[in-house]
Amino acid sequence: MQLSERLAALAAKIKQQRGIIETEEATKNAFVMPFISTVLGYDVFNPLEVVPEFTADVGIKKGEKIDYAIVRDGEVQILIECKRSLGELRIEHASQLFRYFAATNARIAILTNGEVYQFYTDLDAPNRMDAKPFLILDLNDVDETLIPEIMKLSKDVFDLDSIISAAEELKYIGQLKRAIAAQFQSPEDDWVKFLTAKVYEGAFTQRVREQFTGLVVKATRQFLSDQVNDRLKAALGESSIPAVTDATLAATVTSEKPVEDDLAQDGVDTTIEELEGFQIVRAIVYSDVKPNRIVHRDAKSYFAVLLDDNNRKPIARLHFNRSQKYLGIFGPDKAETRHPIASLDEIYEYADQLRETVRQYEGQAAA
């Protein structure tokens, strides 16, 4: 099983069990130990590899314990401090990690609540743990670009030098990505002012700020839609794929009241990945129906692709609101069959089934 699959399996377990995990000890047993064993590959029951309740006297602090120490060749390499699941991680939780990091040979420290893993090292000062993590792994939303870096810490291919050398770049790229995502979601005044100054020569008054805040949001949506279209064109080698428009990126079409309660729009957050998946499905069935007949409606638990904006004519459902993604395909009885996919490109493997679904609806209409 690939590392990505092991992460997806653990993420599914977390989603299923998080509601009943109420203590730190339960978090360690249910989530953290499986991460150490199934993801990193260490034997949690072998004290030569994993030391629970690791103790090392630090200055006047005697008998303090840290939750786990991972040992290789007799040397402590990774320290792990755990907090209760559903509790937000804060730097204050890492006080013991700071002290133990300086007292051992460990170069990697991990602070976790079983769902989010913050990885630290000593980039700023030798043998002193940094105040900010160089890598954050969120099992509720796994960034696949981080998987090769996690692999470097696993038992089979442990490569500390490689991950330390990449840590500084990982640290700043991660922070920049989160900062950019925040500005795309809700632009701050400084961001609006910066972009406005590039295109507007007048004074940045309150009226101008209000006007350009909306324009920045709209321009951001259009920029993202352009990126989606460019990726699809590159993937298909075509230049005539129906484009994602700003209207596509806005609220979903609701010309007909949905039958399912799940199509309620409260709390729905349409992602770029869902829109990319929608464009792939639309490109696939383009040979059978005109693209303007293929629409989408986002829901809390899935993203629906419909024919003629009719929820009784579902073409596909994209279940992307989880670590393991699924493509839902509909048969003649309109029963949904979910197929696990690791990437959007795998949607093309179901092209024949998607086209057949559309042809069935067209045949029923003709009859």
Rank of each mutant, 00 (worst) to 15 (best):
E256C: 06
V44G: 01
I136N: 11
L307V: 03
T112M: 06
A12Q: 10
A103E: 14
Q77L: 13
D159S: 15
I315Y: 00
T38L: 10
A247R: 13
R178C: 06
Q206L: 12
F101V: 03
E22C: 10
G214F: 02
K65T: 07
V295P: 00
K290A: 12
V142S: 12
A69D: 05
L89I: 14
Y200G: 10
D352F: 08
E75W: 00
A125W: 04
Q279M: 11
E336G: 01
N321G: 10
V268M: 01
D298W: 02
L306S: 04
N29F: 07
L176K: 10
L176P: 01
S255M: 09
D43A: 13
T55N: 14
L275Q: 00
P258Y: 07
Y361K: 00
L224P: 03
A181V: 02
G331D: 12
P34V: 09
D73Y: 05
D143I: 08
P314Q: 10
K13S: 11
G41E: 12
E356S: 12
K290N: 13
E5R: 05
L79G: 01
I60N: 12
L7R: 04
A235C: 06
L224V: 15
V58K: 00
D43K: 08
E356Q: 13
T270C: 08
E64G: 06
